[in-house]
Each structure stands twice: as structure tokens, then as C-alpha cells.
Amino acid sequence: MDWSAFRVSIALGLWTLLLLVPPSLLLSRWLAWRRFPGRALVEAAVAVPLVLPPTVLGFYLLEGVGADTTLGRAYRAVTGGELVFSFEGLVLASVLFNLPFAVQPMQRAFEAVPRGVREAAVTCGLSAWRAFWRVELPLAWPGLLSAVVLVFAHTLGEFGVVLMVGGNIPGETRTLSIAIYDRVQAFDEPAAARMSLFLLVVSVAAIAATVRLGRGAWRDVSRRARRGGS
């Protein structure tokens, strides 16, 4: 097991979540409840990473934020660091690439909150903040949590974008999936097998968790409905 790659992967997952979740909450809530011209366009733009080859996204990131680009120079001027072949660049790529994995489940979750219930919060005089914490968040919770799980698992497994933007720098940009590739290239199959098994377990656990969250929410509702009767 390449522990430094493990640490990079975990750090990348956590940073991605930290940076991706707050704007995704806002964006998904906005897409779920607001009707405005161009909404379909925004939804389509969010979904693009689902079908875009990771290498294409990586290529444009290299072109867009490379050391010699305006953005790259501006980033260096402010932070002294680089956005390509660095951990920061990996996080940026991961955030962009994971946008649909966060926004889409969150949007579905917010859409499932009945309009009447949201309006009742308003007519009860709840502030927007309190309505969010007390009503919207608890009702959308399973969907939001499964978005978080999906994004984390997806980040651990990402390969193409990471290789394009980050390269393979031990301790900096070499993630678990890159390390597996690296070990296979070096004919170190036992190491590749251990890391592969680990990622397999994480992936299966993530999917099981999201399925369970989804079904759990449903079972909860139907159980309450049954008990309610009339």
C-alpha cells in the first residue's frame, strides 16, 4: 500500500467536498425551486462533466490555468504556487469534474421538498436561514448525504483528469488510482492488488450507502404513512 498516495487521495476527497458542497447546495436549491429563462442551459452545463472525457477536461484545464496563462500567472502572483502539476490544481480539477455528482442528487433532494411545506415555513415567519436549517435541510438530508458520499468515492477513483492536470508526483499529486497504474507498470502486482481491493471496497460501500440512504428515506416515509392511516 502506498500510504502517501492514500493520504493524497483522502486529502483530495475532503478538500473537494469542502469546496464543492457549499456552492452545490446553493446552485441545486436554486435549480430546484426557481423557474427562469436559461435554466435548462445551466442544467446542461452542470451535466457536461458526466459525458466529457476526463482527458478533455484535463486538456482545457492545462490550457486555461497553465503556468503561462493569465489565470496561472495571477494565481502565482497571489499564492506563489501553480495550478498545474500541484495539489491545488488537482483540487480545482476535481471540483469541476464532480459538479454534476454533487448538484444533481442535491437538486433531486430539494425538488422532493413539497412547495407547500416551504411556503408554510414562510408564513410561519421563519427567517430564510432558519427555514433552511429547520425545514429544508432535514427533509432533503438523505439526498444531500448521498451526494457527499458519491463525490468522495468518485474523487478517490478519478484517474484521467488527475493524470492530465497533476501528473504523478509522489506525496503531491499521486493519488491511489495513479499509484495503482504506476505499480502495474512496474510489475508490482501485489501492491496494485492491495490498493485496488481497497478502492473496490470503498466504491461498493459508497454505492451501498447511497442506495440505503435513498431506500431508508423512502421506508421511513411509507412506514409513517402506514401508521398514519386516517
Partner: peptide, 29 residues
């Protein structure tokens, strides 16, 4: 939210995750 309105919705629109008491208490913030 600043109009002092008491509204009963057609399907009641209760907060499904809160108890009867908490539903009413939310209107007393």
C-alpha cells in the same frame, strides 16, 4: 415572512419531520 398571516394550506403542509408540538412551536420563533 413579515406579514402577520396565519395560513392553513389545502393539504396542511405540516413539517413532516417535526412533532405536532414542534410544528406549532416553529410558528413562535
Amino acid at each position: 415572512r413579515r406579514r402577520r398571516v396565519g395560513m392553513v394550506f389545502q393539504d396542511y403542509a405540516l413539517f413532516p419531520h417535526l412533532s405536532a408540538l414542534d410544528n406549532v412551536a416553529e410558528a413562535l420563533t
